[in-house]
């Protein structure tokens, strides 16, 4: 962090610690509280609503879906974005194995490869179908973002997929992948955090999760309490931040 962003001042350290500690306390409190009460309500997000239904549709046609996780890996600044994309795979793995339509998952950083292969393998193991597991469904395409996008576009164009899901670390090059999907009139679901990727994805699909919505993928697709609780913690922190920014703006205005 210090190497990426330059030296960190005392004020920055205080702000980061405060944010991390409040987030930590909120998550723990909400998890403990959530064990008893009903699940917290969440607003609908079109990007993730029909995700599991797409797997069902793919099964009816005897085909599969493609999930592109972008060029992020586990050891760079996109690590957490990639982990958020991973939640999509985690949510779909069991459904896909139940329907016997394992998704084709493409990655642009090989550090994700063993993690996703393991997620898929565990889904097979849970169903007692370990013999059917094929590690070749998870594919490392290329380390360069544009080359990755071109390779993933080829999977969409040539491998008989019935839906295209992009979720993870992308730039504007994501339009190469979605263009391949649009040419085949595939339903496309997208979630991205980078502004360049969002700009490229907006014209392609109305099932788009923008910015922090990507990190809500686990909550929407699995409905698990641990994800829902952290989503609520995220919302509370956001409201506090907005109030702080508004307060600072008012103080600056009044103070001249």
């Amino acid at each position: 962090m210090g190497n990426l962003l330059g030296p960190i001042s005392g004020a920055h350290v205080g702000a980061i610690l405060l944010l991390a500690l409040s987030g930590l306390v909120l998550i723990i409190l909400l998890i403990l509280r959530g064990r008893k009460g009903p699940s917290p309500p969440i607003r609908p997000l079109p990007a993730f609503q029909d995700l599991q239904d797409e797997v069902g549709r793919a099964a009816e046609r005897g085909e599969t879906i493609h999930i592109a996780l972008g060029s992020g890996g586990l050891n760079g600044e996109d690590a957490v974005t990639s982990l958020a994309g991973l939640q999509v795979v985690e949510a779909l793995a069991d459904v896909a194995v139940s329907y016997n339509v394992p998704p084709i998952i493409t990655v642009g950083d090989p550090t994700l490869l063993p993690l996703i292969q393991d997620l898929l393998r565990r889904a097979y193991e849970r169903r007692g179908l370990l013999a059917d597991y094929d590690s070749g469904r998870v594919r490392f395409v290329a380390p360069s973002p544009v080359a990755y996008a071109a390779g993933a576009a080829n999977v969409v164009a040539a491998e008989g997929v019935t839906a295209n899901v992009v979720a993870g670390a992308f730039g504007a090059e994501v339009s190469l992948i979605t263009d391949a999907g649009a040419r085949r009139d595939l339903p496309q679901l997208a979630a991205a955090a980078a502004p360049r990727a969002i700009g490229a994805l907006y014209p392609v699909t109305d099932r788009l999760a923008v910015g922090e919505e990507l990190y809500a993928a686990g909550a929407y697709t699995t409905g698990e309490r641990r994800y829902l609780s952290s989503l609520v913690a995220q919302d509370i922190l956001r409201v506090i931040l907005v109030l702080l920014i508004l307060g600072a703006a008012v103080v600056a205005l009044v103070g001249g």
């Binding site: 944010l19 991390a20 987030g23 930590l24 998550i27 723990i28 998890i31 957490v80 974005t81 982990l83 958020a84 939640q87 955090a193 910015g211 922090e212 990507l214 990190y215 809500a216 686990g218 641990r226 994800y227 609780s229 952290s230 989503l231 913690a233 995220q234 922190l237 956001r238 931040l241």
Partner: peptide
């Protein structure tokens, strides 16, 4: 929003929720 989402996702890994 992305920064908040990043912090919360990382914290989930720290507390073994994810």
């Amino acid at each position: 929003g992305v920064a908040l989402g990043t912090v919360i996702t990382a914290l989930r890994v720290f507390v073994a929720s994810d």
